[in-house]
């Protein structure tokens, strides 16, 4: 590790980034803070209500449910996507034309606009016009994502796994490519088993990319909005209403600016907290090594 030079003039290089991100982050965030402590009737009438909205949000059972659902969803998809992604990365060919073909094909779901992902699964899962729905019907499963909460839930999970496992796979694939061939040769001389190679050579080298993968997937699944919105609209009932959706319903649907703003802040703080915990534990783990 090279030591960095101390130089405060470097701030001038960071300044453009600071300005542009501040414009689209700090100003809106301050607006949200401003709303969260006021009761707004129209543009000119508003009262200061202090922490009232925060109290209301903290005690709102709908939001508790959405939060629990959100955590459950995020952990489910992490549990599926990370091992599956590693598996796919291990299976991907390493050389030649087939390698770049695989890369392109695997990456396709990542480049589809999120609402189109929702649309694809909306079509694919329908019993009358979709292959998946028809298949489930054919093997005798009573499947209907629009009316059964369990089906809706599993379809959203399946969709997310379909959509985002490629990201984990590609991250791991690039991590695997960075392992020098010598390591494998040494393992071959020691007659290491396939599992031993994975456990003691590949997995340690994948730690870094897996950290990024877990962090990205956690953050993004925590803000999931468009795909379930298109697929199930948060229903049936509110079984697939995650945090973002609950927030948008409140802010745009009911136009409760104050409570929605308080909710936004709480939501943002939860993400920030979880990510900070992730980030520091990981950094400490790396330092210990």
């Amino acid at each position: 590790m090279q030591t960095k030079v101390e130089n405060n003039k470097a701030w001038f290089l960071v300044l453009p980034v600071f300005i542009i991100v501040a414009f689209s982050a700090i100003i809106p965030l301050m607006t949200v803070v401003n709303y969260s402590v006021q009761d707004i009737f129209d543009q000119n009438t508003s009262y200061f209500v202090g922490a009232e909205w925060f109290k209301q949000v903290m005690l709102d059972s709908r939001l508790h449910d959405a939060l629990i659902r959100q955590f459950l969803f995020s952990f489910t998809i992490l549990l599926i996507e990370i091992p599956l992604g590693i598996g796919v990365a291990l299976m991907m060919p390493t050389k030649g034309k087939s390698a770049s073909l695989c890369l392109i094909l695997v990456a396709i779901p990542l480049l589809i606009p999120w609402n189109v992902v929702g649309t694809i699964w909306q079509i694919f899962g329908r019993e009358d016009i979709g292959l998946f729905g028809a298949f489930m019907g054919a093997i005798g499963v009573d499947y209907n994502y629009a009316s059964d909460p369990v089906d809706a839930w599993s379809t959203v999970v399946l969709m997310d796994v379909w959509h985002w496992t490629p990201l984990v796979a590609l991250l791991c694939y690039s991590g695997l490519r960075a392992i020098p061939e010598v390591y494998y040769q040494a393992a071959r001389i020691d007659q290491a088993s396939r599992w031993a190679v994975f456990r003691y050579i590949q997995l340690p080298k994948l730690t870094n990319v897996l950290i990024i993968g877990v962090l990205l997937r956690f953050m993004d699944s925590f803000m999931i909005y468009t795909e379930p919105f298109v697929l199930t609209g948060g229903g049936p009932g509110s079984s697939t209403t995650f945090l973002s959706q609950a927030l948008v319903q409140q802010a745009i649907g009911q136009f409760d600016l104050g409570p929605a703003a308080a909710f936004s802040l709480v939501y943002f703080l939860i993400i920030l907290l979880v990510c900070w915990v992730f980030y520091t534990t990981i950094m400490n783990m790396q330092k210990d090594k």
Binding site: T31, V32, M223, V248, A251, A261, S264, Y267, F268
Partner: peptide, 15 residues
């Protein structure tokens, strides 16, 4: 900077 990557777009919608 990274924390902005974590910010849910839904939070910033109205502002």
């Amino acid at each position: 900077l990274l924390s902005n990557r974590m910010a849910p777009p839904a939070v910033f919608l109205l502002p």
